[in-house]
Amino acid sequence: MINDKNSKKIVDIIQDFSRRHSLFVLAYGTGCGAIEIPPTMTSRYDAERFGIRGMATPRQADLLLITGYLASKTLKRVIRAYEQMQDPKYVIGFGSCTINGGMYWDSYNTIKILSDYIPVDVYINGCMPRPEAVITGFIELQNLIKEGKANGAQKYKENLEWYRENQKKVIKDWKMPDYNW
């Protein structure tokens, strides 16, 4: 994906363009921020203009949207969903809770920094971010894809041990296969 600008072939240009403009979102809506997704998708803000569309399963999705706090229990499911997504895949952390814990900064069962556990391409701050902010985040991701910088999945694969170590610190009873594709 990261090609030299000059050696970019026409196929790559088409591929990149379609990748940018067709993002299938898997919204992991456990946090309160999930309430901002319906307005973003429906008539007032209409994210479908940018080709952003909800998808129901991780297999079909390109973009994992983590809306808000993640309990250590749900982290396990998020990791599974993330690893089941097919490359190229991106993650957006949504709300202060994914950045630094937000108002749950001292809670015993929510993780504090999402990017310790799965690679995050774009963070949207706010508690909770308004639909404008959400759409700005999507556009930021599109720009990152255009510049070839949205390579969180690659980072995850290269630093799998580090991520696993962090994940296993929280998920004590690791009953999953080592990597579930």
Partner: peptide, 20 residues
């Protein structure tokens, strides 16, 4: 709503074909 562009389905299909 405004809706996606008319060629959106082409983009979707091209993107899906280019996925691993």
């Amino acid at each position: 709503r405004v809706g996606p562009p008319v060629y959106q389905n082409f983009l979707d299909i091209v993107k899906l074909y280019s996925k691993k």
